[in-house]
């Protein structure tokens, strides 16, 4: 497993390989319907592009988004990240990781009655800023936190 991980790190940046991420699915950029995978957003290569592809422009920094994550992740293949929004009317929560080949890791739609708080585990190739993008009442808010990775793990 460690061998493949090393190899992965060396080849991770290849643009041609990114084409392999292309997956079948109906795409409607800027729209995040449950059934339709937002291919355009998941294929972006920088955080600002991903934020744009999710339909947000210039999100406001917010202290009302709480990111629960350790400062240092020993294993980049499994980085627990919990995001809680205290902004009323939160509709969606997205997790973006700077410096990953494709920053957008996950996007959650929060229906009414569900608490705006999700926890999952993500892969990080290296030490980077992790962004939480929250949509509330049609507006976008963002917060970020740097997570240090001592062992990269985009290979899983």
């Amino acid at each position: 497993m460690n061998h493949t991980r090393r190899r992965m790190l060396k080849t991770g940046g290849g643009a041609g390989l990114l084409a392999m991420l292309v997956a079948a699915g109906i795409v409607r950029p800027g729209e995040a319907l449950a059934a339709d995978w937002n291919k355009a957003a998941f294929e972006t290569k920088t955080v600002p592009d991903a934020i744009k592809a999710l339909g947000a422009s210039a999100p406001a920094n917010s202290a009302d988004i709480v990111m629960r994550a350790a400062d240092i992740a020993e294993n980049g293949a499994v980085v627990p990240v919990g995001i809680e929004s205290k902004i009323p009317g939160t509709e969606s929560i997205s997790i973006l990781i700077d410096k990953n080949p494709n920053p957008l890791a996950a996007s959650f739609d929060i229906p009414a009655g569900t608490e705006p708080s999700v926890t999952t585990r993500v892969k990080m190739g290296q030490t980077a800023d992790v962004y939480a993008l929250v949509k509330a009442n049609g507006k976008y808010y963002v917060t970020k936190k740097e997570i240090k990775v001592t062992l990269g793990g985009c290979g899983g």
Partner: peptide, 25 residues
């Protein structure tokens, strides 16, 4: 019959994914 959470994931979610959330009712 009511959706309480929907998510779209990319390949950056860890192997054997874990998910935690809370809903009312």
């Amino acid at each position: 019959g009511k959706t309480v959470l929907s998510a779209q994931w990319g390949p950056a979610v860890s192997k054997n994914p874990f998910l935690e959330f809370n809903f009312k009712g």
